[in-house]
Amino acid sequence: MIPLLEGIEDYNNAGALIGLDATDNNELLGALRKMNPIRRQRTINKLSSTGMPSRGSRAEMEKHFAELPSYIKDGLAKGDLRLADTIIYSIKIVNSKTIKMFETQDDKQIGLRNISNAKLPKNQALLVSGVILLAGSSVDQTVDNIMSTNYTGLEGFPALATGETDLKANKKQIFPETSNAVFKTSSYHNVPQGYYKLANPRLILDDILIELTVQLGTMNGIPNNTYLYAGLHGTITTP
Rank of each mutant, 00 (worst) to 15 (best):
M52I: 13
L32W: 04
G56A: 11
S129C: 07
A199I: 14
L120Y: 03
E62G: 02
D24W: 14
T142H: 15
A84E: 03
G56E: 10
M35H: 04
T235Y: 08
S129H: 10
N36P: 15
I132M: 10
I222S: 10
S186C: 11
A230N: 12
L81F: 01
L120P: 15
T104L: 01
I91R: 11
S70H: 10
N45Y: 15
T98M: 12
A66S: 04
R33Y: 12
Q173E: 08
S137C: 09
N25V: 07
N45S: 03
G51M: 03
P192C: 02
K100R: 11
P37M: 04
G56W: 13
A66E: 07
N117I: 15
S49F: 14
T165L: 09
Q141V: 08
T162H: 07
Q193V: 08
T213H: 09
H64Q: 01
G153K: 02
Y188H: 02
T23D: 07
N114S: 02
L112Q: 07
I72E: 04
R33S: 07
Y151T: 15
A16S: 05
P223C: 06
M35Y: 02
N220R: 07
I222F: 14
R33I: 03
D206S: 08
R113L: 12
G156L: 06
Y188F: 11
D140Q: 06
L134A: 02
E103N: 00
Y196F: 11
T98H: 05
I2D: 15
I87C: 11
R55D: 00
K172A: 05
D85F: 15
P158V: 03
L216Q: 12
R82F: 14
T86S: 12
D166C: 05
T152C: 09
Q124M: 08
D144M: 13
I210H: 14
K108H: 07
Y227Q: 04
D85E: 08
Y227W: 01
N114D: 14
Q215G: 10
S70D: 11
G19A: 03
